[in-house]
Write a protein that binds this DNA or RNA. Structure first.
Lengths: 154, 154
DNA sequence: TCTATGCCCATGATATCCCATAAATCCAGC
DNA sequence: GCTGGATTTATGGGATATCATGGGCATAGA
């Protein structure tokens, strides 16, 4: 498998390091990534982490904009400037920087969540809360859909 | 990686020197830049720093303006007028000139921000404020996009 | 002479490497 | 399916390398 799947919670050690789950590392290696790049997710307290291909994707999107308008500049600022390298050491660990801690609220543990082409890093408790919200939204959507269908068949 | 990515804040010493982040220096070297050009960013209090290709970019920008109008002339004056060279010393430091200080408001610290093909120098607090604005704009863009899609499926 | 600039070296903090160990996982063979 | 051994994985910690930063010294230009 070459996508990031499933999730895991790992502990941060006294030096601020945390192991990236082994199956995530396998994906990274299989794709030939030397290091990882982390962006702050726009609307949740999580980091989006991926290889250079994550950047390529964003850069293709940026290329669609007029390079001299504000939107292109904003996007470049966000993608190139508002992120940080996460270098894997040879034991497969990364160091959790203050930059990451501030945006995510991570202190002692990191929840890694596979998202297909990238993965996310969360503070475990916030992830749990977020998961419940997502479930609630999906449930409501589903209920509304059946109500609509019921009304239609009447 | 051959692009300027992520950001870092470094201190200016008593001689007015500041270290360019090591990974930025690596990019400079890999790209074979002999020295760096610093130009005043057109609409933010930051310096755009990069190799000779940075000038090309600005000239493209200026070429968009009608050469008979004042704007093009202003821009050219602004950009070519006194963009300065930033010489790297052998410890990878540059000296922050008054020219840079005036345009950016930099006093004791410099925030280096990767922008892909070039990087920027900011006064840290101004950078933070600007970053928040950018995030807010992008978030709005994103929300508007999902609203548009929702309206479409109805 | 004074100031600005570049070169060199020192140092502390941090990041990285390398090895150890315990827990978890996998797997062969029954 | 089970069991015991082998391998992988997460985690800890000492040793080492890198980097940002500070300061001395020499040169050069005003």
């Amino acid at each position: 498998m070459d996508r990031f799947l499933s999730s895991a919670i790992n502990r941060i050690d006294s030096k601020g390091r945390v192991s990236v789950p082994a199956h995530f590392r396998a994906v990274v290696q299989r794709r030939g990534f030397a290091d990882l790049y982390a962006l702050r997710a726009l609307d949740v307290p999580a980091m989006d982490v991926g290889g250079p291909d994550l950047l390529d994707r964003y850069e293709q999107r940026i290329a669609l904009e007029d390079p001299f308008l504000q939107t292109a500049d904003d996007m470049s600022f966000f993608v190139h400037g508002d992120g940080s390298f996460l270098k894997l050491d040879q034991d497969g660990r990364i160091t959790v920087t203050d930059f990451v801690r501030e945006h995510t609220g991570i202190t002692t543990q990191v929840a890694f969540v596979g998202r297909g082409l990238f993965f996310q890093m969360w503070e475990p408790e916030r992830l749990r809360a977020h998961g419940e919200q997502v479930r609630a939204r999906l449930l409501k959507l589903r209920q509304r859909a059946s109500e609509a269908r019921a009304a239609h068949t009447e």
